[in-house]
């Protein structure tokens, strides 16, 4: 479940499908704003730290030559006046500094960047990755979380993806067989849908579009979808009851029969139709 534009209803749709279908593992792939658990509040049973490697210095070996700082392409290392300093937020954990150090003064330690949690209630299951506050890069957290999905016994996985069309989005959709883009018929929705379709272009995914609040404005995505060869697989009108359901933390399909019917139909006749690629 992805969108390009934020706030189009990804999480409402993902939580609805996961609430309706016991065969589904719900995965929150929005590492810096994981919200799926607010609508699927299954108690967390286990958690694991998500880590990235970071260099640490042995001050007895470091002579401040600066080879590591010159090699680092992210500008994450400073060697000023013989002292060594890491700017942790800029470090990508690539390990080049350790390799270039002529005195073997650097080694790597795993540094926690987030937490992956698994929640369960009855036959329902959720997996979420959460970037620790203030850290800039959610990609390792998203990568770890979507990679953990196959450890579940569930035969199907729904990933609630982050908005946008850049690296976090690409990371979260990479393991998917099919991508449902939830959009809205406004100029913003249409522009961002086009960007998301552009990012998906060469990824070899089956893509479908769900038009949410299809009656609020007239920027229908049909023409764009036809041009891109992507089907519109569902339409949902604006509903105050759906907005209220979401505001109460209840997946809208549990309250609204049109949501229930549209989404189960879409799941069985579009999402599962192609099967795993």
């Amino acid at each position: 479940m992805a969108s390009g534009k934020g706030g189009t209803g990804k999480t409402a749709v993902a939580s609805s499908l996961a609430a309706l279908l016991p065969e589904v593992l719900a995965v929150d792939g929005d590492g810096d704003a994981p919200n799926l658990h607010l609508l699927l509040p299954f108690p967390f049973r286990e958690s694991a730290l998500i880590t990235r490697p970071r260099p640490v210095v042995d001050p007895n070996r470091c002579d401040g030559c600066g080879a590591c700082a010159r090699a680092c392409r992210f500008g994450a290392l400073l060697t000023l006046g013989g002292s060594w300093r890491l700017l942790g937020d800029l470090c990508h954990g690539c390990g080049l500094c350790v390799r270039v150090c002529p005195r073997g003064a650097l080694r790597e330690e795993e540094y926690p960047v987030g937490e992956r949690r698994r929640g369960e209630e009855g036959d329902r299951e959720i997996l979420e990755g959460r970037l620790f506050p203030g850290l800039p890069n959610p990609v390792p957290v998203i990568e770890d979380t979507v990679a953990a999905a196959p450890s579940s016994t569930k035969p199907a996985v729904i990933i609630d993806c982050p908005p946008g069309s850049s690296c976090p989005f690409v990371t979260s959709v990479r393991p998917a067989h099919a991508v449902l883009l939830v959009t809205e018929p406004t100029p913003f929705g249409l522009a961002d849908l086009e960007l998301a379709l552009g990012a998906l272009k060469d990824m070899g995914k089956r893509v479908g579009v769900l038009v949410n609040r299809c009656d609020v404005a007239s920027f229908a995505p049909e023409e764009l979808c036809a041009r891109e060869g992507v089907p519109v697989v569902g339409r949902l009108p604006f509903s105050r009851a759906v907005a209220e359901s979401y505001a109460e933390g209840v997946p809208p399909a549990l309250r609204d029969h049109l949501w229930r019917e549209t989404l189960t139909h879409l799941w069985h006749h579009w999402a599962l139709k192609g099967g795993p690629a």
Partner: peptide
């Protein structure tokens, strides 16, 4: 911000970032 559970949660996170 938006008065929904997700909107409240995300406002809290954004606010903490501003404080940081």
């Amino acid at each position: 911000a938006e008065p929904t559970p997700t909107g409240e949660e995300d406002l809290g996170r954004m606010g903490e970032l501003c404080r940081l």
